[in-house]
């Protein structure tokens, strides 16, 4: 499989376009003949990252690198940062706004889902500067 690099700009606070990057990635992976199970893992992880970037990161970017053996998705935002990463990793913990909750977000499953459906998850965050989330999914 050829190396493929994709870049997505993610608008902050625009819930109406959230999911576009994930849908596009799913389409690309299908075209590349990636297995259904890997596509499911990638779609869920990508969607959660995209939503987090909108809700918490005030917008940012997602960079995807697809190689022969793995898929790396990197989300970068310049939002407020995560105060306590271990707390944020707990299922059910959420700091989403009421507006986000009314739309069906804020279940506190974003980062836990990313961890569950990826093979490796690396998070680095600096308060007041932003957050970088790297998701690695093996293709085989």
């Amino acid at each position: 499989m050829p190396n493929v690099k994709l870049h997505y700009d993610i608008d902050g606070n625009d819930f109406t376009v959230a999911g576009q990057a994930s849908s596009n990635l799913k389409k690309v992976l299908k075209q590349l003949g990636v297995s259904t199970e890997v596509i499911r893992k990638a779609a869920i992880s990508m969607y959660e990252g995209e939503i987090n970037t909108v809700i918490h990161g005030k917008g940012g970017a997602a960079d995807v690198e697809i190689s022969t053996d793995k898929l790396i998705i990197t989300f970068t935002d310049h939002g407020p940062g995560i105060k306590d990463i271990s707390q944020a990793m707990q299922e059910g913990f959420s700091t989403a706004t009421d507006e986000a909750r009314e739309l069906g977000f804020g279940a506190g499953m974003g980062l836990p889902n990313m961890k569950k459906y990826s093979d490796a998850l690396n998070i680095s965050s600096v308060l007041g500067e932003g957050t970088t989330v790297e998701i690695i999914i093996h293709l085989t």
Partner: peptide, 28 residues
């Protein structure tokens, strides 16, 4: 109705019943 939960639990081929009516259900 919580989109993250639906994302991880709904199976391909399921019919999805929800009270959510906003545009985000399309992405899910």
């Amino acid at each position: 109705d919580m989109l993250s939960v639906v994302m991880s639990r709904a199976e391909e081929g399921d019919i999805w019943l929800t009270v959510q009516a906003n545009v985000n259900i399309d992405a899910v």
